[in-house]
Amino acid sequence: MAAIIDIHPAKHRTRVRRATAESAWSRWLVISIAVGFMGLMFVLPLVVIFQEAFRKGWDGYIEAFDDRATMHAIWLTLKVAAITVPLNTIFGLAAAWCVSRFRFRGKRLLTSLIELPLWVSPVIAGLIYVLLFGAQGFFGPSLKEHGIKIIFALPGIVLSTIFVTFTFVARVLTPQMEAQGQAEEEAAMTLGANGFQMFWRVTIPKIKWGLLYGIILCNARSMGEFGAVSVVSGHIRNKTNTVPLHIEVLYNENQFVPAFAVASVLTLLALATLILKTLTTTKRGAA
């Protein structure tokens, strides 16, 4: 750091000063803006969530979970994540494999399609499925004929969650697999390994930290998704309310302690994700 308060005026000329060094004043300004913003936008809400959740003490907090609708919402969210995450792990792996290993027509298109969920509003994502599978939708009549219910039911929630979260594993793995190249896989093949052995013994160990990182992000988003799920779920209590939707319902009914108590569970999930994400990033860096 270039010292601004110079107590040796005689040495002034020889003082080392980087061309990019800012003045102390501007450094302070930038740091306080950053810290202030973080505090206001992230730390304060975090504190508020837990403060509100524990307003009636530990017993009140625990009591908030002694509720059929709440437990159902948590169970449903776990179920959705349990279906979504493995599927998106497979989709993500397949997509990253295609993009990083093969040259083909439409590769650019595929790459941008993978990022689609990031720039399409989740509400639109949900709406697509309503328009396709809803009662008035494209496949609506024929689905009804066969007695299959997608919208306002678990399949719709899972579909829209898959849509919103399929980008994560693929987006983490593609650049990593591109950078690593496939020399090790080729070596495995010349040593007599078949495709299955090559994948499990060489590829998976190479990408495991990135894969884990993608899975963690995918999981966090699939448990926390509100917009897309809100459109397709229909908010049926004890049936199609996931945790985020349930929080909204509780809040709108002025049940603040339960609302914030359930919200604190999602917050803890976010914090756990953050810690795991940091750990896997370090591991990825070291690998």
């Binding site: 010349t190 040593l191 160990p205």
Partner: peptide, 21 residues
């Protein structure tokens, strides 16, 4: 025949050792 059927010993330019083993 595929590479794994031919089983020719191949030494790669940058060795391509399995770094996790």
């Amino acid at each position: 025949r595929t590479a794994y059927e031919r089983k020719a010993g191949f030494v790669f330019q940058n060795y391509a050792l399995f770094n996790h083993m």
